[in-house]
């Protein structure tokens, strides 16, 4: 990170609240972070922690009804929060694009895949039919789809999950976005395919000089692929910092629990994975204090009554939200 690289994405005190029949549901609360050009940041957390909502709020894709968004999201200088759909449309695809979670549902089942890619090129970049088709085939080749000229006319149902996710990526890349939001891009795929897709994303990020927000529940996915990491719990950032710092010197017990629950190559085989006890909290009825307190073995009365603020740790850019942080000596655990 050179000091002169500018912030492509600035998220400041971002909150997303859903109005449900049972009351207000704070899906994302007071999230702030920045992302520089060419950087990849990871967002991790269990399902229900607000990662997907955060990604969609950053992009401004949430439907307008029954949703309240506060705070600020600047993408390449454009304020997303409060912008109308037609305004946002000018930035979607070209400034910011998204790779969706489930390739089985994110492609239009009755539209040929080639058409789904070159539609973007023709509508957004005003390309002619022929050049859009040529570029779409190029993109299909770029994301590693064999015999892309023939596959151009295939329907999504004729492709495997991994191939479909490559098509989704090709569609997202069609207008060379500066920022790519990848929302659990490998959840629905086989393990071997997962690695291929993630490597493809990393490769493309470098080749096309994109910034990437990589959202996942799997810490193994982000370990080597991101420079910084955000850990979310119950809609809040509970720990943020450089990826290696988080792995080596995490302070928040929740981060530890996440690490313990994900398989690691360094462990001998058949090591028991530790499940996080309890369940994620009901967002409609959050505790007053730390949301993780009910599941935390270190919790004190203060944890239950007072919400911990994000506090800086010893490393630069590393903060955590915890009243009883783990001692710094935990570094020995990661080797």
């Amino acid at each position: 990170m050179s000091p002169d690289s500018r912030h492509l994405l600035e998220v400041d005190q971002l909150s997303t609240t859903f109005a449900t029949p049972h009351g207000l549901l704070p899906a994302v609360s007071e999230v702030s972070f920045t992302l520089q050009e060419d950087e990849t940041i990871g967002i991790v957390g269990e399902s229900g922690s607000g990662k997907t909502v955060l990604a969609r709020t950053i992009m401004g894709l949430q439907p307008m009804t029954n949703i309240q968004v506060e705070g600020s999201v600047l993408i390449n200088g454009f304020q997303v929060v409060g912008a109308s759909d037609p305004e946002k449309r000018k930035h979607w695809g070209t400034d910011v694009a998204m790779v969706f979670q489930d390739p089985m549902t994110s492609l239009n089942p009755v539209m040929r895949i080639g058409k789904q890619i070159d539609e973007t090129l023709r509508v957004r970049l005003g390309m002619s039919r022929q050049s859009a088709k040529a570029r779409a085939i190029e993109l299909l080749t770029l994301v590693g789809i064999p015999s892309s000229t023939e596959r151009y006319d295939a329907f999504p149902g004729e492709l495997s999950g991994g191939m479909r996710q490559r098509v989704v990526i090709a569609t997202a890349l069609a207008c060379s976005p500066k920022l790519l939001l990848a929302d659990e891009p490998t959840t629905g795929l086989d393990v071997t395919i997962q690695a291929q897709i993630l490597n493809l994303l990393g490769e493309l990020q470098q080749r096309l000089h994109m910034s990437v927000v990589l959202i996942t529940h799997d810490l193994g996915v982000v370990a080597t692929r991101t420079s910084r990491l955000i850990v979310m719990y119950a809609g809040r950032v509970v720990e943020i910092g450089e990826t290696r710092d988080i792995f080596a010197h995490h302070r928040m017990p929740y981060t530890r629990a996440l690490l313990d629950s994900s398989p690691r190559i360094s462990n001998p085989s058949h090591t028991r994975l530790l499940a996080i006890p309890g369940r994620p909290p009901n967002l409609l009825n959050l505790p007053n204090g730390c949301s993780f307190a009910p599941r935390c073995s270190f919790a004190t009365d203060q944890c239950h009554n007072e919400r911990p603020p994000l506090t800086p740790s010893s490393e630069p850019g590393h903060s955590f939200a915890c009243w009883n942080p783990l001692p710094i000596s935990t570094r020995s655990e990661m080797s």
Partner: peptide, 13 residues
């Protein structure tokens, strides 16, 4: 949107 489905709203009659 699995994150949203985690909180299942009970449909009131």
């Amino acid at each position: 949107m699995t994150d949203l489905l985690a909180v299942e709203p009970l449909e009131a009659k």
